[in-house]
Design a protein around this nucleic acid. Structure first.
Lengths: 129, 129
DNA sequence: GTAACTGCAAAATATTTGCATCCTT
DNA sequence: AAGGATGCAAATATTTTGCAGTTAC
């Protein structure tokens, strides 16, 4: 919980670049395929966890339990991830991406909402042609 | 994909009873804790997968990637799980339950929606007192 | 120089599979 | 008795941890 001092390393930069280049949610597996020759498998795990802790990426768990990560809005941090937008997973090209659409929640007032997680599966425009 | 003939066994009945008694989403871990002395760990995995295939339960993946299962509406089957309702996970008592609320989706028409998965975290009424 | 980061090996978890045996139909 | 279901062991993932060596600051 106590956030330690961070340092800028080559590995972290490579991962961050990958996030910036790919406009979709990234899994550990994808990163390992792309950067596995440049850094250790374990390092990727650690970087991803660190990034999430620091609010640089937010986690999206796909239907089969695999963690994906996508760049966060600027107002995310460890305690609160603002990811009340919809995530869309295309079953054809198997990509997960963040949508702008948010969801209007209407739960009874006896519920306190802390975090939301919306995942929609289907076919994306690109594959829908 | 080809659904085989099913048989009624003691183990399956125990699991099904557990679902009926507990009005919340059940993980493999919970089942093992409750029924682990009556059947094998692997059997529980297989029963859960079979139940999901047959549309008896639907899967809910929690934020930490753990699969939970809850009894389905009657019109679920392997191809289509009607679980466009909201799942609520209480961060205090750590239970996941199905809510009646559904979500009004408004995605661009270029998207085809096949499945939805809504997980909201927070504090449930019981723990909110 | 200090402490964060990485790599490697190993440990800890989680899930699946092969196969012999048992049980439902 | 045919074949689905189970138990057990072992194979596969998947993720985490310990620790020594490296590197950013």
């Amino acid at each position: 919980m106590a956030k330690t001092q961070r340092r800028q390393t080559k590995s972290q930069k490579l991962v961050l670049d990958f996030f910036n280049e790919n406009d979709q949610a990234i899994s550990h597996e994808m990163l390992e395929k792309a950067l596995g020759d440049k850094m250790n498998r374990v390092t990727i795990y650690r970087i991803l966890n660190r990034f999430e802790e620091d609010g640089i990426v937010h986690k999206i768990v796909s239907r089969d339990g695999v963690a994906h990560f996508a760049r966060c809005e600027s107002d995310c941090n460890h305690d609160h991830h603002r990811d009340n937008h919809i995530h869309f997973r295309c079953t054809q090209c198997d990509t997960i991406s963040c949508m702008e659409q948010t969801v209007a929640l209407s739960l009874p007032s006896s519920y306190t909402v802390e975090n939301t997680n919306f995942l929609v599966s289907g076919v994306c425009p690109k594959c829908n042609k």
